[in-house]
C-alpha cells in the first residue's frame, strides 16, 4: 500500500449525499473533490462512485423495451467508464479504495423498478469482480446499498447516515474489507449472505 494522499474524489452521487459525504470525509482530514469535474491535486486514493440515478419506474409488462434498454445501457456504461477509470488510476499509483453507492433494489428487487434493480444488481456483480481483480494490486472495492423502499416501523436513513457508511467503507485502515455490499436501509433490507 502506498502512502496515503488522503484525497477523495466523489462522482455521480445525489446532491444531498455528495454534500454529506464531503462534510464527513472532510472532518476526517481528507481533501474532497466533488463534483469531480477536474480533479487536480494529489492522485486520489479513494473514489466514491454513485449509480443511483432513479427510474424510469413502470410495470415491466407495460415497459417499452427501447426505453428500458436505453436507461439500463446509459447507466451501466457510465458506471463502467467511472469504475474503469478509478481502477486504472488506483492501480497505477499503488492502491486505494473504491466505494460504489448502488441501489438496494439490486439486492431485493421491487415491483415496478426493474431498471433500478437491474442496474443495482449489475453494480453488485461489478463490485465483487473488481474486488477480486484489483485486490492483488492493493485496491479494495466495496459498495453501500441505498434507496430501499420505506417501511413502517423502520427509520429511513438520512444522507448523513449514507455518508458515514461511505466513510467506513473508505477507511484505509481496513485492507481486508473488500468485495462487500453493505445495505444502509434502516434495516428494511438486511444483508443477503
Amino acid at each position: 500500500m502506498r502512502s496515503l494522499s488522503n484525497h477523495a474524489v466523489l462522482v455521480g452521487l445525489p446532491t444531498e449525499v455528495g454534500r454529506a459525504a464531503t462534510r464527513v470525509l472532510g472532518a476526517r482530514g481528507l481533501r474532497v473533490t466533488w463534483p469531480a469535474v477536474d480533479a487536480d491535486g494529489p492522485a486520489p486514493d479513494l473514489f466514491v462512485i454513485g449509480t443511483t440515478e432513479p427510474g424510469p419506474a413502470a410495470d415491466f409488462a407495460d415497459t417499452d423495451p427501447v426505453t428500458w434498454w436505453a436507461a439500463v445501457e446509459r447507466r451501466l456504461c457510465t458506471l463502467f467508464a467511472l469504475a474503469q477509470g478509478a481502477g486504472r488510476d488506483l492501480a497505477a499509483t499503488g492502491g486505494g479504495r473504491i466505494v460504489f453507492v448502488l441501489d438496494a433494489r439490486g439486492l431485493a428487487g421491487e415491483a415496478g423498478a426493474t431498471v433500478d434493480a437491474t442496474v443495482g444488481s449489475a453494480a453488485i456483480a461489478l463490485t465483487k469482480t473488481l474486488a477480486r481483480e484489483l485486490g492483488p494490486v492493493g485496491v479494495a472495492v466495496n459498495a453501500v446499498a441505498v434507496a430501499a423502499p420505506p417501511r413502517d416501523g423502520f427509520a429511513e436513513p438520512t444522507p448523513h447516515d449514507v455518508a458515514q457508511t461511505i466513510a467506513f467503507l473508505g477507511d484505509a485502515r481496513l485492507p481486508s474489507l473488500t468485495g462487500q455490499i453493505l445495505p444502509c436501509t434502516g434495516g428494511t433490507i438486511r444483508t443477503r449472505a
Partner: peptide, 18 residues
C-alpha cells in the same frame, strides 16, 4: 451507531467471501 445500520453482516475477510 454511525450510518444507522441494523440487521447487517459486515465481513472483513481478505476476500475469502465475496
Amino acid at each position: 451507531g454511525r450510518g444507522a445500520l441494523t440487521g447487517q453482516v459486515v465481513s472483513p475477510n481478505a476476500g475469502t467471501v465475496i
